[in-house]
Simulated assay, not measured.
Amino acid sequence: MSQQTSTRTGANAFDPTRIGSLELRNRIVMAPMTRSRAYGTLASADMATYYAQRAGAGLIITEGIQPSAIGQGYPATPGLHSEEQVRSWRPVTGAVHAAGGTIVAQLMHTGRIGHPSTTDASGHGALTPVGPSAVKAAGGVFTPTGLQDNVVPDELSEGDIRSTIADFAAAARNAIAAGFDGVEVHGANGYLLHQFLATNANLRTDEWGGGPENRIRFAVEVVRAVARAIGADRTGVRLSPNNGLGDTAEPDYATVYPLLVAALDPIGLAYLHLVEAGDPALTPTIRDAWSGALILNAAAPDPLDHRARVELVSDGSADLVSFARLFISNPDLVERLAVHADLALPDLSKAYGGDHRGYTDYPRLGALAESGADADPAALAEAAA
């Protein structure tokens, strides 16, 4: 069972806590967000500044980091599968630690969501994306030359599956070598692990497909491999039941996810990061089935009521809560939430790619107050969604 001990009631989101081996200054988490500024798949000085600015979060979860060249889905996203990439991350983790923060690397293999032109531009050759089955996802994907249609992925063989699991474990070891405090395995949002769970992406008839018990196998084996590589107490996993991203269909999600959580629970992970983008009614079931720490990225009936999200900790709905886009424009988000301050708005036209503008130039609370800037409620609602 997990090392996390939770009373499930009476906690305060601004109090310190321990999850697994991670000592956190508070229970507010910066959720992973792709920013596409890792040119050449390497972490940069701007990235060190960006993450260090947000070290007031109890836990920072990085943008998705590919565990292998074939796992890259988008331009200018970082990797952890070469020594050069490992070296590039050390100034980032060092800057966060110097600011008193805790940071874990999210390992994200995008599976069939990708394009040969993206890996080609990164210097790895025009690699065809892979998936559980040779089924193209509807829609398109951003590439170095703009939006292109998704392609038919290559179906992973049994040997490919085993190699991919090994890639995750190797990338986890690289993360620790790069100075990260742990790893989050991305099993959400329509990427590779999620594709194995989805009945329209996984048409396999072997031990990796078919019924729910087989479709959860890949996710469980990846998480187990990472936990063996670096310790379960430094490993987390992110899930997003039935959110439909990446053209995923999960008609039996209400069966699949409790089964998956029950299989993951005995590993003793540091945490489960649950995204309520599909059916929030499933959350209490997962909460009851999970004995460890739960980070909740909550659905918000009223996106402006940020206090309600924070209070999910005190009412026992979650052990920690995560915020995403509000951390883009509020590097000191925890402080602002604590004092009920106005929140700044992100310029989403600068969310992906570019330079420091819209990345490291958002002011802290004092500077915002001096500017006299006011937040527009409608825009804040969009930012918080």
Rank of each mutant, 00 (worst) to 15 (best):
L264K: 04
L264Y: 06
L264T: 05
L264R: 02
D265G: 03
P266T: 04
P266N: 03
P266E: 04
P266L: 04
I267G: 08
I267C: 07
G268Y: 10
G268F: 10
L269W: 10
L269C: 11
A270D: 10
A270V: 10
A270F: 12
A270S: 14
Y271W: 12
Y271D: 02
L272D: 07
L272P: 05
L272M: 14
H273N: 15
L274D: 05
L274H: 15
L274M: 10
L274Q: 04
V275W: 11
V275H: 13
E276Q: 14
E276Y: 02
E276V: 02
A277Q: 14
A277T: 11
A277P: 00
A277F: 13
G278Y: 09
D279I: 02
P280H: 03
P280L: 02
P280D: 05
P280G: 04
A281S: 15
A281V: 07
A281W: 01
T283V: 15
P284C: 12
P284T: 11
P284Y: 12
P284S: 12
T285R: 15
T285K: 15
T285A: 15
T285V: 15
T285M: 11
R287Y: 09
R287E: 08
D288M: 07
D288E: 15
A289N: 07
A289C: 06
W290D: 07
W290G: 06
W290C: 08
W290V: 07
S291N: 15
S291M: 01
G292D: 13
G292M: 12
G292E: 12
A293I: 06
A293E: 08
A293K: 06
A293R: 06
L294Q: 08
L294T: 08
I295P: 06
L296Y: 12
L296G: 01
L296I: 03
L296M: 09
L296V: 13
N297V: 06
N297I: 00
A299L: 01
A299S: 13
A299C: 00
A300M: 15
A300L: 15
P301T: 09
P301L: 11
P301A: 12
P301G: 08
P301S: 10
P301E: 09
D302L: 06
P303W: 09
P303D: 08
P303N: 07
L304A: 12
L304H: 02
L304E: 02
D305A: 14
H306M: 14
H306D: 00
H306A: 12
R307V: 07
R307M: 05
A308I: 03
A308Y: 02
A308N: 06
A308Q: 12
R309G: 07
V310S: 01
V310A: 02
E311I: 00
E311T: 03
L312W: 00
V313S: 04
V313T: 01
V313P: 04
V313N: 03
D315N: 15
D315L: 00
D315A: 00
D315G: 00
G316Q: 09
G316S: 07
G316F: 10
S317V: 01
S317H: 10
A318P: 03
A318M: 02
D319M: 02
D319Y: 05
D319K: 04
D319C: 04
L320D: 01
